[in-house]
Nucleic acid binder design. Structure first.
Lengths: 333, 333
DNA sequence: GCAGCATTTGCACACGCTTGCAAAAAGCGG
DNA sequence: CCGCTTTTTGCAAGCGTGTGCAAATGCTGC
C-alpha cells in the first residue's frame, strides 16, 4: 500500500519555515497571525495540498461540525425534498450532513443515534421514527442537540417542529362542504404517525362540527399503492363518498388514479380529492391536486438556525403553517 | 455551559478497574482481551453511557469510515432512489454516508470534494457534476477512492459505473419502428451530461441505421416542466412526430401530460412515448410509461463493494445493463 | 537609543483513541 | 513444583489539531 498519508500541519510548517502553531492559527478564524507569515503558510499549504484534518479539529474543539439526518423512505418525494432543503441550510451554516437510512428494521433509529454519538455529531435531525427515551437523554446529556420534524413528541429538550395539521384538516373540510360535497371520507395509511393521525382526527372532528360523518379507511404504508387500495375499499362501498381527504399526496395520487381509471369517476366533478405535502407530482397536469404545502425551506431554516445558535434558545417547539395550494381536484374555488 | 463532555475510555477504565488499553481493546474487533475483563468493561461502559469516539479512532487508524456522497437535485425521484440504495449498502458495510448537496453553483463539486478531504473520508461517490482533474488527483494521491456514477469520464483511478445507453437507445428505436411509427423524435434537456447525450446520439444513430431521421429538441433542466416545453416545440411542428424517446422519465411525464391534455393526443394510439430511469411515477396508472430501469441496487452494490475492497481491484470501469420495462406507452408488445 | 506597549510566535500540553512492546499472568506437560 | 509456551495486560508513544502562557518581536513617542 503506497498510502502516502495526508500532509499534516507539521510538514506545512517546515516548508514555510514557521512553527506548527502558526499554520494552525492561519486556519483558525480569529487567531493572531501576522499577514506575512499567514501568506507564507498559505503558499506552503497550497503547494503541498494541505487540508485541515477535521477529525482532529473536532477532537480538540469538541465540536465536529457534523449534523446527523435520520431518515427513512429517502426515495419518497416529500422526504427527499426536505433532505435537499436541510443539506442546503446546513452547508450554508458551515455544517455538514451525515445521512442515516433507517429503512431496515425498527429500533434502527436508536442505532442511528448511536452512530451520531460515535461521530460526536453536534446535533441530529430526526425525520422519521421516534428514538428511545434513554437514547434521547444520552444525546442531550452530552450536549448534542436534537430536532424532531413532524414527530409531535412531548418530551423536553429537543426542538419540535410541527405543522398545523388539525387546522388544515378543518379548512379542507369546509372547502369540501362549500363545493357541495356531502359524503366525506379520509384515506390514511396504517403508519399511524402523529401527524397523519392529527390530520385524520382533525378532519373527523371538523366534519362532525359541520354535522357529518366521515368514512375512514387505512391501509399499508404511506405510498401510491396504498392510495389505490384505499380507493378500492372506499369506492366499492354502498354509499360512495363524494370527497376524500388523503393523508398525503402520494396516497392522493394513487387514489385519483384508481378513481379515474378503474372506477371511471371524474375528478372533481364526481368526486373531490385533496392531499397533503404538495410534492412535485401534485402540480403535474395529470393530477392538479389541491393540497397543503409543507414549508420545507422554512422547516429547514428553523431547524438549522436553532442548531447553530450560540445559546440554547428557550422555545422548544415551533408550529408552522401549511398553505393551501388550490388546484383543480376540488370543485369551485 | 454545562457541557458535561462525553465520557472517555479513561473513565470507563477506572470504573471497571482495568487499564485504558483494556477498554480500547474491548471495542476493537480482533484484539486480545480475556472474557472476564471484557465483561467488566462492557458493564462499566453500559453504566456510564460510553461510546467510542470515531473521530479519535479515525485519526489513529487513518480510516474514518466516512464515505462522501456528492449529489445535486436530491429531490428528484431517480437521484433520491439512488441515494437510498447507496446509504443502505454503505451501512451494510459498516460505512457511513456524508451527504453534500451541490445544487448551488458549479465548481461546488470541487468544494464538496474538499470537504470530503477535510473529514478524511475513505471515499467519495459522485452522482452529478464532474470534479477538476487537480482535485481528483489530490483524492487519489491521499488514498481516497472515487466512484463516478453515470459520468462517463475517461480519467484513470476512479471507478466508473455506466449504463449501456446507446444499446438501450437502439432497442427503443426498433421498438418504435415495430409499433409502426415513422416519424421519430428525441426529447432532451440542455444539461448535456454524457449519459443524456449518449442516449440522444445512440437513438439518432440507430434511427439512421433503420433509414429514418430524428427530430431532436432540447430545453432547460432535466425535469417535468422541460418535458412540457419540449412537447410544445415538437408537437407544433408541421410534421408532428408519432414516437418520442425522452432522455429521462421526468421529461417523459411532462411530455405525455402536454401531449394528452394540451394537444389532446392519445398515448399510445396517436403517439408513442418512452423514457429512461424507471422512476416510481413511470409505473403510475396515469403514465404507464415504457422505460429503461436504472439498476440502482446493482449500482450501489458495485460501488460499495469496490470501495470496501481490501486490495484495489484492477477493473476500473463497470458497464451495467438497463432493462426495458414494457408498459403501455408504446403500441403492441 | 530606550522605556512602554501591543502584537506575534513558539513551546508544550491536551483531546481520545490505537497499538507495538515487554512484563505479568495463565496454562500445561512432566 | 518447574520450565516452557501462550495469552492477557499495562505502559507509553504516537495520530493531527487547538490554545494558554510566556518569551520574543515590532512599533510608538520621547
Amino acid at each position: 500500500m503506497s498510502q502516502k498519508l495526508f500532509v499534516s500541519a507539521q510538514e506545512v510548517a517546515e516548508k514555510a519555515g514557521v512553527s506548527r502553531s502558526a499554520v494552525s492559527r492561519t486556519f483558525t478564524s480569529g487567531a493572531s497571525v501576522s499577514p506575512k507569515t499567514r501568506q507564507k503558510v498559505l503558499d506552503a499549504a497550497e503547494a503541498l495540498g494541505y487540508h485541515v484534518n477535521h477529525l482532529a479539529r473536532g477532537l480538540m474543539r469538541n465540536e465536529s461540525g457534523i449534523v446527523c439526518l435520520i431518515v427513512s423512505e429517502i426515495g419518497t418525494p416529500y422526504r427527499s425534498a426536505l433532505l435537499r432543503a436541510l443539506t442546503q441550510q446546513l452547508q450554508n451554516s458551515g455544517k455538514i450532513a451525515m445521512l442515516i437510512n433507517t429503512d431496515r428494521s425498527d429500533g434502527s433509529v436508536d442505532l442511528a443515534l448511536t452512530q451520531a454519538i460515535r461521530y460526536r455529531a453536534d446535533a441530529s435531525i430526526i425525520l422519521s421514527g421516534l428514538p428511545d427515551k434513554s437514547i434521547t437523554d444520552l444525546c442531550l446529556k452530552n450536549g448534542q442537540r436534537l430536532v424532531l420534524i413532524n414527530r409531535d413528541d412531548d418530551r423536553e429538550g429537543p426542538l419540535k417542529i410541527n405543522l398545523d395539521d388539525v387546522e388544515a384538516a378543518a379548512r379542507i373540510a369546509t372547502a369540501f362542504v362549500r363545493a357541495g360535497c356531502r359524503k366525506l371520507a379520509f384515506a390514511n395509511s396504517q403508519a399511524g404517525t402523529p401527524s397523519l393521525m392529527a390530520r385524520e382526527h382533525g378532519f373527523v372532528a371538523a366534519a362532525k362540527a359541520l354535522g357529518m360523518d366521515v368514512m375512514v379507511e387505512r391501509f399499508g404504508h404511506t405510498g401510491y399503492e396504498s392510495g389505490r387500495v384505499v380507493a378500492q375499499q372506499l369506492l366499492t362501498r354502498k354509499e360512495r363518498p363524494d370527497a376524500v381527504f388523503c393523508a398525503t399526496d402520494l396516497l392522493a395520487c394513487g387514489f385519483m388514479d384508481a378513481a379515474r381509471h378503474q372506477f371511471s369517476l371524474s375528478v372533481p366533478d364526481q368526486i373531490c380529492v385533496a392531499g397533503f405535502d404538495d410534492i412535485e407530482q401534485a402540480s403535474w397536469t395529470s393530477y392538479g391536486l389541491t393540497t397543503f404545502a409543507q414549508p420545507v425551506d422554512m422547516i429547514a431554516r428553523e431547524a438549522v438556525s436553532w442548531l447553530v445558535a450560540e445559546t440554547e434558545p428557550e422555545n422548544h417547539t415551533v408550529r408552522l403553517h401549511a398553505d393551501l395550494v388550490w388546484r383543480t381536484s376540488i370543485r369551485g374555488g
